[in-house]
Nucleic acid binder design. Sequence first.
DNA 1: CGAGTAAAGTCTACATTGTAGATGCAGCGT
DNA 2: ACGCTGCATCTACAATGTAGACTTTACTCG
Lengths: 234, 234
Amino acid sequence: MASPKSAPAADRKARLSRELVLATALELVDAEGLDALTMRRLGQELGRDPMSLYRYAENRAALLDGVSELVLNELPVHEEDPDWKAQLRQIAHNLRLLALQHPNVVPLLVTRPLSTPLGLRPLGTLRPLEQILALLVGAGFSPADALHVYRAYYGFLYGHILNELQEFVVDPEENEVLLRLGLHRLPAKEFPLLRALAPALAEYDGSAELDQGLTILLSGLESQLSLQPAHSPA
Amino acid sequence: MASPKSAPAADRKARLSRELVLATALELVDAEGLDALTMRRLGQELGRDPMSLYRYAENRAALLDGVSELVLNELPVHEEDPDWKAQLRQIAHNLRLLALQHPNVVPLLVTRPLSTPLGLRPLGTLRPLEQILALLVGAGFSPADALHVYRAYYGFLYGHILNELQEFVVDPEENEVLLRLGLHRLPAKEFPLLRALAPALAEYDGSAELDQGLTILLSGLESQLSLQPAHSPA
DNA sequence: CGAGTAAAGTCTACATTGTAGATGCAGCGT
DNA sequence: ACGCTGCATCTACAATGTAGACTTTACTCG
């Protein structure tokens, strides 16, 4: 046997770091869901005492913030792109894919900001916002209009992602659509449309639907906002 | 003194009921937030043993579902309204107001469906969906198109609500905007736009912004979907 | 009116969670 | 060699959700 003192024992005794902690936290959440991310469990996953985690995150809450930040940092934004509509479209699709890759993190992305005032959020979380504003201002919008565009855009985007994840098919083994979505439980007389739409629900093409919505929204915003070049005083 | 046997002692010994339990749960959440809603605390609030709650909700999770359901049931939908755009607009504003009245419940509305397949959700939660579909079909959309409209609409609506709540002003006592939103903490060089937009952030008129977005989206959807009257087979 | 039954409410107990606080332990500069 | 500084661990505790056995209440039927 090698001396257990200095040998790293495969991966056991590597030095901890915030990045490592957050990365394994994310893995854990992806694999087993948010509830599995307890301090004890994460400690065990790292081969360390649970208490050591508190060096790298004040709280469990801060840890969760860290995980959202980690995910959002994987979202590339090219703020110099001259074609703002194309760029926003691409960002949207990228975020959608991110969400599909880390569905268990989505509740965090959506929920945590509700309990944290804008300025106190993890900086990584705010970067996309600032970058998108820069993109829009660079494309010729006034800062105030850029904010309006951002809000409509991001609102729609988040809403779409939530919607799509909510409709996710549950039991792909089952090929009877009513069963797959659990719709058979619904009283047929009170929910005729919903039940009848089972096939349509099953064929949901999220990417296409997102794209359509964006087309509508972006061109609408464009025409509406370029017409009023600035806020006239009073 | 009145005989303590049959007297209700102010409000103490009224018989429990699911409605009563859920109603006080909602009060508690509104007043002190989601974390305050523990079984023990709710029991105390009702003057009963915590365990008695399990007669009226299987779980804490089920209890949370019940609360969302309760809130969503306060949302009126007039599915016979011939003017679908006006009706959708009104629903949107009503839901927005509901959300502002019960901000602590919003995380539930948004998050719980992510862990529950469509057909297994509390029925009260699905009723708005069915009703809106009915409204759209009644207005002349094919069921499949109605679903598309619903998705874009509800997605945008939920997104807007989340956005608006996230930007909520923290400390209205403080009248320096940068402070109110905690923006002073942001490094000025990395977040110039965000900081410069502080006044605009503070004057956010959610209702107006929601309405604008709806105008764009609804008319866009209308023109796009009435052009293709039905899906042609392959 | 009085006994029996089912529902409603309570008590006790336990495993699991986040986290405070004290303790141990490495490696460094002097 | 010494102590200092940051990392890691240990122990302990209060709070939570909930199972299971028990008691109390209310109501029905003879």
